[in-house]
């Protein structure tokens, strides 16, 4: 079984994100970039599958700030290959562009599964798995929480919301957006990452950046800052009414 894991970098959400001079992107200068957390789940699932059933795990992604870090981390965790697609692109890459770059590379590879994170915090023009699946003409599924080889294909379990899960059987190759792996992503000690770094082993592939249609961001802004809590008073009946109203307004169904 050959599993390709598509990974990417994203601004660390613990950072205070600021908007750059263009007003349409975050200021990428001082922000720390880390591996997308759902991609880490995808990698974990791939490694677990490999450990349970054998096979090969190939990690691939479009180059970005500190992406080597992520690739070395993946190698240290047990990935067999790490591939960096370098197209000289900087800034906010639309999913459509990313998917096209990956699709071009994947068409040259053979594989049984492509796993990626179900989403990323800035994938404004859609989540990678579906877009990539369409470009490759392969079946795909998102919000995957379970994956098992099954006969000639795979059993895929998706979360449908409200705790309902759906299990389907699919014949590969498949593209899946992973929500959660069977176990939390493993810890990889820094010394192992350093070993992987000194061993090298990242394959760099020069690619071209295609163009694609994506929404044009006209303004990026922080939602209205909230200070201290707005006090609802202390008369229980009134407060209760306001609270029920707030809950309803949030779209959480209350019986």
């Amino acid at each position: 079984m050959k599993i390709v894991v598509a990974m990417r970098q994203i601004a660390d959400l613990v950072e205070e994100l600021e908007v750059d001079a263009s007003g349409a992107d975050i200021d990428r200068e001082f922000v720390k970039f880390v591996s997308n957390e759902w991609d880490e789940a995808a990698l974990e699932e791939a490694l677990c599958l490999k450990e349970a059933h054998g096979g090969e795990v190939v990690v691939v992604g479009v180059d970005d700030v500190d992406f080597d870090q992520t690739l070395f981390g993946a190698l240290a965790k047990g990935a067999d290959r790490a591939v960096k697609l370098d197209c000289g692109f900087e800034g906010w890459m639309p999913t459509a562009v990313r998917a096209e770059i990956l699709a071009r590379w994947l068409r040259e590879e053979s594989f049984d599964l492509v796993l990626t994170g179900v989403q990323a915090a800035d994938d404004l023009d859609g989540q990678l798995a579906g877009v990539l699946g369409a470009r490759l003409g392969l079946p795909h599924a998102a919000v995957v929480v379970g994956l098992e080889p099954d006969g000639s294909g795979f059993k895929v379990t998706q979360e449908l919301g409200g705790g309902v899960t759906l299990t389907s059987h699919a014949t590969g190759p498949l593209v899946l957006g992973i929500q959660a792996a069977r176990q939390a992503p493993r810890y990889v000690p820094i010394s192992r990452i350093r070993q992987a770094m000194s061993a090298g082993g990242i394959e760099v592939v020069e690619v071209e950046a295609p163009s694609a249609r994506a929404p044009k961001v006209t303004r990026l802004f922080a939602p209205e800052a909230k200070g201290r809590a707005e006090m609802l008073g202390d008369k229980p009946s009134e407060v209760a009414a306001r609270i029920v109203e707030l809950i309803r307004a949030k779209g959480v169904s209350v019986s």
Binding site: T95, A96, A99, V118, Q119, D123, L124, D125, G126, Q127, L128, A129, G130, V131, G133, A134, R135, H140, A141, A142, V143, Q158, E159, L160, G161, G177, R213, A214, P215
Partner: peptide, 23 residues
Amino acid sequence: TGTVGIDLCGALAAQSGSMLASY
């Protein structure tokens, strides 16, 4: 932006070359 929307929209937009915005 739930499972069904994510499953369908990205792929359909990609197939038809349409614009897509999520969240």
